[in-house]
Simulated scan of single mutants.
Amino acid sequence: MKTLLYVLYGGKSVEHEISLKSAYTVMQSIDESKFDLYPIYITRSGCWFSRGKLSGKTFLPGDLILEAAEEEPAGTIGRILTELFTLEGPKVVLPILHGSNGEDGTIQGMLELLNVPYVGNGVLASALTLDKALAKEVLASGGLPQAGYRTFPYRNWSEDRDHVISLIEGNIGFPCYVKPGSLGSSIGISRCERREELEIAIEEAYRYDGKIVVEKEVRGREIQVAVMGNEYPLVSLPGEFIQDKTFFDYNAKYIDGRLSMSIPAEIPDILVNRIRQMAEQAYLALNCSGLARVDIFLDAEGALYVNEVNALPGFTAFSMYPVMWERTHGTSYSELIEKLIDYAFNRHADKQRLQYTKE
C-alpha cells in the first residue's frame, strides 16, 4: 500500500511566496510509485483548499495557487480533514510552510492533536527556532558563542525611542543588523551604519513582529551547515554562498539569481570539524528533530559564532540545504525527502509508546 503524503504549502505568512517555490520543487520530486500525493494550499487568510490526489507532474508553479471563494478558515480546515485525512492507509504530512503559522509550532501543534506523523521539528523546537530572541537565550545557556545582541519589545520603542537608540549605540554599535523577532528569509531585516538608518530599520522590523533583535555585525563569512535526524543527527559538510553584497537580503536569496554555492566551503579541516560540532550542538540544544540548517559566522581571526538555526530551510532551486547533502553523501533530492519522511515516522512511533493514563 502506498503512503498518503499531504503537502501543506502557502500559508498565512509574509513568506507565502517562498513556500510556493519550495513546495513546487518538493512535489516534482515525489516518487509516485511510493506515495499518493495530496497537495493542500493554505491561503494568506488561513483557508485550506485542495483538488485531491495529484496525478502526474505536468503542473506549473502557478497551478499551486487555488482560486476559491474565501470562507471561515475553520470550515475549510474541517472539510479537508474530513475528506482527506480520513482516507485509509499510512499517512504523513510534509509542512512546507515558512515563517508565521507554519514554522513556529502552530501547525505542528495541530498535527500532534491529529496524531499524524509529520516531517520536521516538533512544537517546541519550531517555536524556539523562529523566535530569534528566545533561541539566542537557549543557545547561550548551552555555551554556544554568539555575536552581541539586544532584544526590544515594541513597548520599549513606543515609550522611549531615544533610550532604545542609546542602548543600541552604547551596547551594540555600528554596523548592526535589525531583525523582526520571529521571521525568516531576511524579510524585515536591515543593516545599519548610522543612527538615521537605525530608526528607519527599527520601524520596518516592527511592521512584522512585536519584538525586534538588534545584533552586532560580525565581519567575516557566513557558513551554513545542514543537519537532519532525531536523537543522533547527521551533519553535512559546510557550505557558503559566494556573493558580492555585504548583506544577504531577500532579493539576493530569491530574485537576483547571482548566487553561487561553494560546497564544501574552502575552510581548513580543523575549522570544518569545529563548525560541524557546533552545528550539532546547536541542533540538540534547541531540541530539533527531522531537519534544520545552522548558520555560523567565521570572522577573520578564526572565531566562530552561531548566527541562527532555521527549522525549515528553503527547498528551492537556489537553496543550500538539499545541495549540501548531495555534496556530502551523494543524497539526491528525492532521497532526501524520503529520509526526512522516515525520520517523521520514527519520531511518531517513539511517541506512541508514551502512556497517557496512570494505570
Rank of each mutant, 00 (worst) to 15 (best):
Y283T: 03
P39H: 05
T316N: 01
E359C: 11
E67N: 10
G181T: 00
V26Q: 10
A205C: 13
D36K: 15
F315Y: 02
Y149H: 15
L198D: 07
G181E: 01
Q108E: 11
Q224K: 14
D160S: 11
Q281Y: 14
I263E: 12
K339L: 00
H348C: 01
G99Y: 05
L113Y: 06
T328M: 02
H329S: 10
Y41F: 15
D160P: 03
G89A: 00
D104W: 02
C47G: 06
L198G: 05
Y149V: 06
A133S: 10
G210P: 07
L134A: 06
Y283C: 09
W48A: 08
E72F: 11
K245C: 12
L111K: 04
H329A: 05
K57A: 08
T25W: 13
L237N: 09
E112G: 05
E15H: 06
R44Y: 10
Y6S: 02
S33L: 08
Y118H: 10
Q28E: 13
Y321F: 15
P264F: 13
L336F: 04
Q352C: 12
Y6D: 08
R79K: 06
R219L: 13
E17F: 10
E240I: 06
E196L: 09
I30Y: 04
A135Y: 12
L66M: 09
F85L: 14
K2T: 05
I172T: 08
N101M: 02
T106M: 07
W157C: 01
T316P: 03
L97I: 01
A133W: 09
L298D: 05
A125C: 11
W325H: 00
I65G: 06
V93T: 04
F248P: 14
L4A: 12
G314H: 08
T25C: 13
F315M: 05
D63P: 12
D295I: 13
P268S: 04
D350Q: 15
E240Y: 10
M228D: 03
